[in-house]
Structure formats: structure tokens, C-alpha cells
């Protein structure tokens, strides 16, 4: 059993296929909650969960505000809300202004998860076209959590991973397959 209590993954342009591969590889009884904060169109509320769910064995849920965070589930930040982790392992959603042109903003999800889980969090940044997530991943590192970025050479758009590597000394630079192996080893 690993020391970690939660996994948070941030991604944007070019991350959809990577996320799909990751969620498809996790077993139904995966023992940790997996939170996804992916950039998405603000006004398109439906379709994303359905598309990710096709190959996933774990249930994928867009949490409602105040829902408890449970193991064995994948949570996707809903459209047009920021997704925060509130102390006590609950979600808190917010309609505060966009950050890095995004709502949900990856930085904000990571800040709040790092604050709640401290060194028990694994933060992963995937392909993306802006720098959202870089400061978030730094906050995970600063709180003692484990940080991983997708190998920029493999990313469709490496801006986000490179910005993250600039912002903090990340623990691992992994290919998609290595990320999957790592997550499976936590189980």
C-alpha cells in the first residue's frame, strides 16, 4: 500500500488521448481517488465524462459541490467551475473569475489539493498549450508531494510540461506508459 492518498492530473491541448489511456489502464478497484482538471469549453457541459467513460473501468464523475472525495473513483472538474479540494477531503466548486484564461483552472485545483493532502499527493501535468498548472505543480512539490510531468518529447503540445519543469524541480519526467506503470504500482 502506498503512502499517497490522492492523484491529481492536469492537462490541456493534446492531453485527451493520454488521459483516455490512463483511465483505461486503471483497474475498477483502484485504491486512490484520481482527480482530473482538464481545460474544456465553458459552455459545453455534457459529453466529456461520457467520452472518457467509454474505456474506463473506474466510474468517472463530475462532482457536485460538497461531495466527499472517495477512493476508486475518477473525478473530472466540471465545465465553468473551478474545482477545489476543501479541508476534510471534500470538493468545493467555485465560480470565481477565470485564471490563466481557464475555468476550471489547473493551478487552483492543484493549490487546494496540495494544501489539503500535503506530501500525500501525486501531481501530474500532461500535454498543454499554456502555462496553467506550472505554479500548481510547484505547490505540490513545495508541500512535499510527488510531481510528474509527461515527457515533453512525447507531448502533442509541450508548453505546459516545460513551464512546469521551469517552475519546479519535478521528480519524474515520464512517458504515458511510464505514468501508467507508476500509477499501477501505487495500488
Amino acid at each position: 500500500m502506498s503512502n499517497y492518498k490522492a492523484i491529481m492530473i492536469g492537462g490541456s491541448a493534446g492531453s485527451f488521448q493520454v488521459v483516455t489511456k490512463i483511465v483505461a489502464s486503471l483497474p475498477k478497484d483502484y485504491p486512490l481517488p484520481v482527480m482530473l482538471c482538464l481545460h474544456r469549453l465553458k459552455h459545453v457541459r455534457s459529453g466529456f465524462v461520457e467520452a472518457l467513460s467509454i474505456k474506463s473501468q473506474m466510474p468517472i464523475i463530475e462532482p457536485d459541490d460538497k461531495d466527499p472525495i472517495k477512493s476508486g473513483r475518477i473525478y473530472l472538474a466540471p465545465a465553468n467551475y473551478h474545482m477545489y479540494v476543501e479541508l476534510g477531503n471534500k470538493f468545493a466548486l467555485s465560480t470565481e473569475d477565470v485564471v490563466n484564461h481557464s475555468r476550471p483552472a489547473i493551478d487552483l485545483s492543484f493549490f487546494t489539493a496540495a494544501y489539503n493532502y500535503k506530501n500525500k499527493l501525486v501531481g501530474i501535468i500532461l500535454s498543454g498549450a499554456n502555462k496553467d498548472g506550472a505554479l500548481g505543480l510547484k505547490s505540490v512539490k513545495d508541500a512535499g508531494g510527488l510531481t510528474i510531468v509527461q515527457d515533453p518529447n512525447e507531448c502533442q503540445v509541450p508548453t505546459m510540461t516545460l513551464a512546469s519543469m521551469n517552475a519546479t524541480n519535478v521528480d519524474h519526467v515520464f512517458s504515458t506508459q511510464k505514468i501508467i506503470n507508476f500509477l499501477l504500482n501505487l495500488a
Binding site: R45, E62, P63, D64, D65, K66, D67, P78, Y81, L93, T95
Partner: peptide, 9 residues
């Protein structure tokens, strides 16, 4: 309510 709020709690 907002579309990601609930009365369930």
C-alpha cells in the same frame, strides 16, 4: 440551484 450544486447533502 447552480447546475453542480445539490440538495443531497
Amino acid at each position: 440551484l447552480g447546475n453542480k450544486e445539490t440538495i443531497n447533502h
